[in-house]
Nucleic acid binder design. Structure first.
Length: 121
DNA sequence: TCCCTGACTGGTT
DNA sequence: AAACCAGCCAGGG
């Protein structure tokens, strides 16, 4: 381990905690997860964290995270994308012929947990 | 320890 | 609509 490696991986638990909050039948984007985890601008790291998941051990609904265009992101390892799509379809999410889902319909919109519930602009 | 590669994104061209 | 580009940062060679 290099000098201070312990610090960096604090992020993974934060990221997993957010992903676990995504309800069934809803999706979140990588950037959205990063922001909710307090890591704005670190969308790429969210992908990296999910890549590091061990499905045999972790109970993180990774399939509910898609890219900002409403598509399932391409993996280095083939064969996973169709599985992710099937899992989402099983939750009631619809994909168009081009393999995209409508974020305006299925994107998770968590309530803000603050005193002032909402002050719309 | 340097260098490169990613389950990404928003702004430009 | 598509290609490019600069940030982002953890791992592995």
């Amino acid at each position: 381990m290099s000098r201070r490696s312990a610090r960096g991986s604090d992020r993974y638990p934060r990221i997993y905690r957010v992903v676990r909050r995504i309800p069934r039948g809803r999706v979140a984007t990588y950037g959205q997860v990063a922001e909710l985890a307090g890591l704005p601008g670190c969308a790429r790291q969210v992908g990296y964290a999910l890549h590091a998941l061990d499905d045999a051990v972790d109970d993180v609904p990774w399939q509910r995270v898609v890219n900002a265009r409403g598509e399932i992101s391409r993996r280095a390892v083939a064969g996973i994308e169709p599985i992710q799509q099937q899992l989402l379809e099983a939750e009631g999410i619809a994909f168009d012929a081009r393999g995209r889902l409508d974020l305006t319909l299925f994107q998770w919109r968590p309530r803000v947990r603050k005193r002032n519930p909402e002050m719309r602009v």
